[in-house]
Nucleic acid binder design. Sequence first.
DNA 1: CCATGAGCTTACCTAAAGGTATGTCCTTAC
DNA 2: GTAAGGACATACCTTTAGGTAAGCTCATGG
Lengths: 123, 123
Amino acid sequence: MAGGVQHRQAEAGQRYDVFHTDCPARDVVDHVTSRWGIWVLISLRSNDLRFYELRESIQGISEKMLAQTLRALVHDGLVWREVEPTTPPQVTYGLTEFGRDVGEPLTELFDRITRRLSPRSAG
Amino acid sequence: MAGGVQHRQAEAGQRYDVFHTDCPARDVVDHVTSRWGIWVLISLRSNDLRFYELRESIQGISEKMLAQTLRALVHDGLVWREVEPTTPPQVTYGLTEFGRDVGEPLTELFDRITRRLSPRSAG
DNA sequence: CCATGAGCTTACCTAAAGGTATGTCCTTAC
DNA sequence: GTAAGGACATACCTTTAGGTAAGCTCATGG
């Protein structure tokens, strides 16, 4: 974070300096890997979803957290948001190209973990 | 079909049920995507590292968090731990096959985000 | 005989994440 | 006139993540 930012990027090999910098990538990584961000992105990979569909799809998520997570992802450019000005308003969410780009390795990550653990407990 | 998620849960198990279950995969996902877990795994992809090397590589991490994160990853089978019984003891960490398997999409995820956001960074 | 170093562990405490409950807007249906 | 539906916002409160700092081990060097 902004506090202890010391860039000791010496010549001692290639060290990921992005680990602690305040570049926008850090925020996006945080949002993508946040508790609910992962599941929102994975959910939206299959198809666009309404707010309430996401809420029911991702069981255990609260409306507050869903709204908050979506706001961050929309702000990051990973998710688009479309409002139909009906009453009540209907809002649909979907992945942008960036979102699809990011959702792919995310799903792959998730799949590799479950693939490894589901047959039998791995030691 | 976009709107099929909420009421069709009984018939079609299409929805990701892992979102809220207590299967071990959930824990692993949590550890992998935890604040420091990501950077530990990415750091270890290039080569095995000693504890202090990790601490210095991932700037901003505290010893407590590093130890805690490593313990979780070792327990999950993503990272191995080797102790040389010298004095002081020297401990080396590295990725298991599972860890390499998981580290790949994780790095890819990270790279895609940085590639998109910073035209001149990450590398 | 005390400091040092590597790799932790433990206690303590604060910041923030996240849950629960409620309010809001506007319109149609009853 | 009141409930309901959809997508939130907001206040309040609890849980947890994570930072700081100290301690521990034990052989070696000063």
